[in-house]
Design a protein around this nucleic acid. Structure first.
Lengths: 215, 215
DNA sequence: CTCGTTACTGAACAACTGTAGCGCTACGAC
DNA sequence: GTCGTAGCGCTACAGTTGTTCAGTAACGAG
C-alpha cells in the first residue's frame, strides 16, 4: 500500500512535472484494480498519492484527459516491453511467438489495464489511435516470417489481423473470467500461430524466460 | 424512445410480475446504451419506465441482482435466436456458420449488451456461469461437423474453444472501436472456420437472410 | 362496508462525485 | 531583504447515487 520513496513533499521549482508523473502512475495502479475507466475517480487518485483532489487539475483538464494520458503511457511501456521480448532471438517465428506471449503474460499480470486499454468505453468517447502502433508491429513480425519462408506467403495484414483478433479473444476471455479453469495460454497461442499464420508445428521458442516483470 | 403500449398504470392484483419484466427490459435498453454495468443506475431505470426508484427493490435485492437478471434474460434470448438461425439448414457446416455469424450480427446490433455480457466487471463479482451453455452448443456444432466428415477429426472442445476465442476477439475489437474501418465480418469468420475448424474452403452458407432483427 | 393484502410512492440519509474559487507557502530571482 | 509566482491545499457547491423506511392508494374477499 506504500506509495513512493519520496515522502511527497512539495516539489522544487521547475519540478512540477514530477507530480504529473506520480498522478499518472497512481491512476495506472487504480485503473488496474478497478478495470473500468468510469470507476476511476479523481479523488481516489489524489488520495493515493496524498494530494488535494483539485491539484490534479493543474496537470489534466479533466478525468478523461488523465485516463487518456495514463493509457498512452501504459501503451508506450507495453510497446517497449514487447520490443525487448522480441530481441531474444533472430528467428522471425521465435520473435513473433515472443511478442504474442509477452502480450498475453502482460495481460495476465495487468488484467485491469488490459481491459481499460482495449475494452473500456473510453474507446468510444476518445480517439485512441495511438494503439495502432502495436497492431502495425505485429503485421511487421508476421511479414518477417513470410519473407523468411517460415510461413506461407500471403497478405500479412490479413493474417496479422486474424492473429490479433484470436489472441485478443483468448486474452479477453481469460481476463474477464479469471476464475475459470483455462487451459495453458502457450498451447493455444502455438495453435493460432500454426493454424492462422502457418508456421511449422515443431518450432517452440525453447526456454521460458518470459517471466521477467513488466517495468 | 417510447416505452410500452400500456401507459404504466398500477398493475392489477397478481400481475405485479409485469413490472418486473418492464424493469428488466428497461435495464437492457439502458445497458445497451451505456455498455457498462457500473454506469447503470437504478434511478435511471426507474425513470425510463416512469416508476419510483424504490419500486425496483420490490423485485430485485440490489442493483447487481437487476443487472444479473437482465443479462440472464438477454443470454436466454440470444440462445434462442442462435438456435433458430441454425435451423436454416441440415448441413452441419452451414449450421455452424449460421450460429457464428448470427452471434456476430447480434453483437453488431447490440454492442453495449455484448460488452456488458462478456466484458463487464460483473463477470468478476458475480457468478455468470449460465453463459456456458452458449459455449457448449458451439462445441456440439463443431462436433457435428467432425462426425459428418466435413472437418478433420479432433478434440471438438479444443477446436470450439479456439473458434470462440477468435470470434470473440474479432467481435470485441469491432464492438470496442465501432468507428474503425473493419473488413467484412463474414470473410473473417469464414477464414476462422477454414483454418481453425478445417471445413472445406468452398462452403458458403448461400443466401444472407441473417438480417432479421433480434426479438 | 370492512379489512387484509398487493402494488407502489415520497421523503430522506449518507456517501460520493467533478469542478470552482480562493488562499497559502516556500522557492528563487533581484 | 523583497516579491512574483510555481505548486499546491481547503472549503464549498451542486449534483447523483444506492438504499431504507414509512406511508398510501387500489383491489378483492368476506
Amino acid at each position: 500500500m506504500d506509495v513512493t520513496s519520496s515522502p511527497r513533499g512539495r516539489n522544487r521549482r521547475g519540478q512540477g512535472e514530477r507530480l504529473r508523473e506520480d498522478i499518472v502512475a497512481a491512476a495506472l495502479r487504480l485503473l488496474d484494480e478497478l478495470a473500468d475507466d468510469q470507476a476511476l475517480s479523481l479523488r481516489a487518485v489524489a488520495r493515493e498519492i496524498g494530494i488535494a483532489a483539485t491539484s490534479v487539475y493543474i496537470h489534466f483538464a479533466d478525468r478523461d484527459a488523465l485516463v487518456l494520458a495514463a493509457l498512452e503511457r501504459c501503451h508506450r511501456d507495453l510497446l517497449h516491453a514487447v520490443d525487448e521480448a522480441e530481441a531474444v532471438s533472430a528467428d522471425p517465428v521465435v520473435k513473433l511467438r515472443a511478442r504474442t506471449l509477452l502480450l498475453g503474460r502482460w495481460a495476465h499480470q495487468h488484467p485491469g489495464l488490459y481491459k481499460v486499454l482495449h475494452e473500456s468505453t473510453l474507446n468510444r468517447r476518445n480517439d485512441m489511435s495511438f494503439k495502432e502502433e502495436l497492431s502495425e508491429r505485429t503485421t511487421i513480425a508476421v511479414r518477417r516470417c513470410m519473407d523468411a519462408g517460415l510461413a506461407p506467403a500471403g497478405d500479412a495484414a490479413v493474417v496479422s489481423f486474424d492473429l490479433r483478433a484470436a489472441v485478443h479473444g483468448t486474452v479477453s476471455m481469460r481476463v474477464n473470467q479469471p476464475d475459470h479453469p483455462w487451459p495453458p495460454l502457450e498451447e493455444q497461442v502455438d495453435r493460432f500461430l500454426i493454424k492462422l499464420v502457418g508456421v511449422p508445428p515443431e518450432s517452440p521458442g525453447s526456454g521460458d524466460q518470459w517471466n521477467r516483470g513488466w517495468r
